[in-house]
Design a binder for these strands. Structure first.
Lengths: 127, 127
DNA sequence: GGTTTTTGTATGATGTATAAGTACATTAAA
DNA sequence: TTTAATGTACTTATACATCATACAAAAACC
């Protein structure tokens, strides 16, 4: 039993397959999984997360479509060396607004501003 | 025709009612809409956004449930003075991870790290 | 005071998305 | 050559999102 490099706990309100993809993408962006490594088989990860393996497969397909993974039968999900695409214009446009929406959600939920600010700066410094 | 204080443009992949609620919440958190003011009637905003008015009504109900709005027939959506709740534990727990997921999404989409970092600090400073 | 109009609400229909069940295809390993 | 491990394809059940329509309340108007 490997350490849970992939800790994925589902919250309600967002489709499981997307939450799984989001979590894995964060791991890939962080570089914790390097090109040449493999993700666990869909059935294994599905068991850990507690969903049907098709749900994990859907998440894998999202990441494969983004260029993170190569999926091949019997060989599993291979992490690729991915070159980030040119930023699409619409992404760049909506990015500030979306960030503010996310932060607003946390403020509305009662997260102290100081905590939010600290976390934002922490992530910024990590870049 | 008032200036579009409420610019809401929908992107695919997230339910419209939630996007509308998210956008409005950000406006409310920012304080651009003060207690005592009114949101536009559901039918009017629905026309601007391009959805059915029930979809807007659903967004209003979300915000009303969070304590932002008082909805009363014929009187529209009144903005309330809202005291933020105590931060729920689970929110505080998942917040850092979710922030990183969101940032990872933007990095994966090709947003330059410098741009992301600048925006993060900008929001942090605004708190 | 009665009527009209403007608002939010409730209910039901319909299409889409999500997740699971099951069978299949491929290929590495034995 | 067989077997087992893996992703894929197809189907079905259910939940969700959106809209259409009818309703209810209350303000505005005469």
């Amino acid at each position: 039993m490997s350490a849970p490099l992939l800790r994925i706990d589902l919250r309600p309100g967002t489709p499981a397959y997307r939450q799984i993809a989001d979590t894995l993408r964060a791991v890939l962006v962080a570089g914790s999984l390097r090109p040449g490594e493999h993700l666990p088989p869909v059935r294994q990860l599905a068991l850990e997360v507690g969903v049907h393996f098709n749900t994990v497969a859907e998440a894998y397909r999202i990441l494969a479509a983004e260029g993170w993974l190569a999926l091949r039968r019997r060989r599993g999900a291979l992490v690729l060396a991915r070159r980030p695409p040119e930023a699409a214009v619409d992404v760049a446009e909506t990015f500030p607004r979306r960030l503010r929406e996310v932060v607003a959600e946390w403020r509305a939920a009662g997260m102290p501003q100081a905590v939010i600010a600290r976390e934002l700066r922490s992530v910024a410094d990590g870049l």
